[in-house]
């Protein structure tokens, strides 16, 4: 029996743009089961990133509730959300966002600085994460010494190193060629299948969406019909 990991209820998000109010998310409901791999598609500006930010506790809804696991995010303070993110969420961005001054190994260790683990244990776990993404032999390379695909693998290792349940990916293959993109998507699929990570992935690429179990389409702040992949 799978249970619900994410429950969004009647979410709205408006931004104040000068005098105008822009409603980016409009009364949106969404339930994501544990172990799901969900692709989120839709035109630019439809609110995909905004929705992803809600799930990751980076943004709060103007109204409605966001439950992830047992936590109601809309009521949490920003420092509580920081702590929560460190334990529960792995983020993967389009442009990898690695720290250029740190090696792959040290980049992956970053989230573990927020734990009580000692240096040795941090190094061991980061090495494990790097081997999961197939980069154990690049541990001491700096980001500038890696290809785009390798950088994204390091970013994925960083996202999984503290063993969160939920991985949030915003166009993770948007900056990669087809072949490299497929490798990254296969890696995400393996994380979903073998490590039971729940994944929500925003993508513009229909081929990328095919790797997901479900595809949701967004348009103007609402979710359209669910399409089974």
């Amino acid at each position: 029996m799978s249970k619900d990991l994410v429950v969004l209820t009647d979410i709205s998000r408006t931004y104040q743009k000068g005098k105008e109010k822009v409603e980016v998310l409009h009364k949106l409901d969404l339930t994501i089961e544990e172990g799901d791999f969900l692709a989120l598609m839709g035109p630019s500006g439809s609110g995909k990133t905004t929705l992803l930010n809600m799930l990751g506790g980076l943004d709060k809804p103007t109204s409605g509730s966001v439950r992830v696991g047992n936590d109601e995010l809309q009521n949490m303070s920003s420092s509580a959300l920081s702590r929560w993110r460190a334990n529960n969420i792995g983020f993967i961005f389009q442009f990898y966002n690695l720290l250029p001054v740190l090696t792959a190994q040290k980049n992956v260790e970053l989230p573990l600085l927020l734990t009580n683990l000692n240096g040795k244990e941090r190094a061991r776990r980061a090495a494990t994460a790097l081997s999961i993404v197939g980069l154990e032999d690049r541990a001491n390379h700096y980001p500038r010494e890696l290809s785009g695909g390798q950088e994204q693998r390091v970013a994925i290792a960083r996202a999984i190193v503290s063993d969160p349940n939920l991985l949030l990916c915003d166009e993770p293959t948007g900056d990669l060629d087809r072949e490299t993109a497929d490798e990254i998507l296969q890696l995400l699929q393996a994380l979903n299948r073998d490590h039971n990570k729940t994944i929500v992935m925003v993508t513009h690429d229909a081929q990328a969406a095919e790797y997901a179990k479900h595809v949701l389409h967004m348009d103007k702040g609402t979710l359209a019909t669910e399409v089974a992949a």
Binding site: L58, S78, S82, R85, A86, F93, L99, P111, L114, R158
Partner: peptide, 12 residues
């Protein structure tokens, strides 16, 4: 980069 640190859970 600083935003990424915060995303990872570093406090303000």
């Amino acid at each position: 980069e600083l935003a990424v640190l915060k995303t990872l859970g570093f406090q303000d």
